[in-house]
Computed example of a mutant assay.
Amino acid sequence: MSRTTARTATLLAGATLLAGALAGCGGGTTATPAAAEGPRIAFLVPSTSLRSMAYDVPNFSVELAHRCPTCVVDVRTAEDQAEQNAQGQEAIRDGAQAVVVVALDGAQAGDLVSAANSADVPVVAYDRLIKGSAIDYYVSFDGGAVGELGGRAILDAVGGDTAGGAIVMLQGDPADNNAGLFAAGAHSVLDGKVDVASERYVAGWSADQAAVEMRSALADLGGRRLLGVYTAYDGLAAGALQALTEAGLPGVPITGQDAETAALQRILAGTQTMTVYKDLPGQARATADLVADVLDGQDPQTTGTTDNGAGSVPTVLLQPQAVGKAQVQSRVLADGYTTVDALCAGAASRTCADAGISAGS
């Protein structure tokens, strides 16, 4: 039994699980509905995370409403970890009975977790592991597998012609635990197979900063051919491609992650090699079911545990998938992750048509 389940009776004393509502999703903190009758769940996300409002929050809220119709999802967005810690503490004072958090800096979220532990409020680390603090659950994708898929794509694209060449690696934000997992997975595939001319971590997962880093990385080639660019995120791929275009280096194999619509368009156009697709709605729904189980006094199903430096954290790890041109329709569109209308808007209509993708397909 998890430590969360052991204290569930305290959390639910007097709570009736009936109907759901989603609090507003503005910046900073959100107002709480005056007539909230059921448990409140604080969902803390970075203000810069587009996926949070596009996938995480809405899918979590809808799924939770099926299980806990009066549950209220209190969404709060933060610019940095200090602000997020303060938001979590405030949400707990306001009566949150569970906290789901996408930590901006998983090593600096201790104040938030301490406040939750003192109030017997369970904490679910969502997508990004919180390290060094006693959290209750962790729900994410297999970060090592994400990196492995990108690394294999680079090797497949390069083939055996590596003489006199090297690759560049653009990793994610060093404050994000996932960035290290992705990097380790990629290295497990690439090390010993291809030379790495330059490896850089990109603060904030910023596309603009990725362009800056890519420009500098090109200088590290030292006259060698650029065989490919491994990037850990589609936004980093966009920045790297900007720098490559400026340098007159078209057609370089380049990887990404998250299956963003712009990246799928680049894949169809042939300027990005692949992306790592993660079922973000599925992750949100799995987390909602986990929270509902905890609030209902049940032990949620997990896939294993993760050592976060403070103990073994019950974990749900989902598996990512590689997506190239052939899988855009059969996998991403088929799952409803994006729509044909969004994918094929504007100039992308031609590449969609070339790939046999149309509104009726």
Results as ranks from 00 to 15, higher is better:
R93W: 05
D173S: 05
V72I: 08
Y337H: 06
V99N: 08
T255K: 07
G248T: 10
D127K: 06
V124G: 05
D156Q: 15
T339N: 09
A65Y: 04
Q321P: 03
A31Q: 14
A34F: 05
T302G: 06
A54T: 12
D234Q: 07
R40Q: 15
G106W: 01
Y138S: 05
G164N: 12
A65L: 10
V340P: 06
F141Y: 13
A322I: 13
G144V: 14
A269T: 12
G38I: 04
L112A: 00
L333M: 02
V189I: 15
G270R: 08
E79H: 04
G228F: 00
G311I: 04
A238C: 09
T287H: 03
A219M: 00
D307M: 13
L149E: 06
T351R: 08
N85R: 09
A134G: 03
A34Y: 03
T302A: 07
A23R: 11
Y230F: 15
G336I: 05
F182H: 11
Y138P: 06
G309D: 09
I130G: 00
D296H: 02
G311S: 11
A207W: 01
D293H: 01
Q265M: 08
A219D: 02
P122Y: 02
Q272D: 11
S61N: 07
T8A: 15
A153V: 07
A284P: 09
K325V: 03
I135S: 01
Y337T: 02
V121S: 02
V123Q: 06
V332C: 08
E148V: 13
A247C: 12
T351G: 01
Q209A: 11
G159S: 10
T10P: 01
V158I: 14
G192M: 08
V101T: 08
N85V: 07
P69F: 01
A35L: 10
T30Q: 13
A91C: 10
D220C: 00
G143Y: 11
A240N: 06
A269K: 13
D105C: 00
L226Q: 02
S118A: 11
G180H: 11
Q81E: 12
S114H: 00
D258I: 09
G28M: 12
G27V: 06
A232D: 10
P33R: 10
A163F: 12
R285P: 10
T261F: 07
L249D: 15
N178W: 06
P281F: 11
A21M: 12
A109R: 01
L318P: 03
Q327T: 04
Q97Y: 02
V124T: 04
C344A: 04
P122T: 01
A197Y: 08
A107D: 00
A348C: 07
L50P: 11
C71K: 00
T70W: 02
D176S: 15
M1D: 13
L12R: 03
Q272Y: 14
V113L: 02
V332P: 07
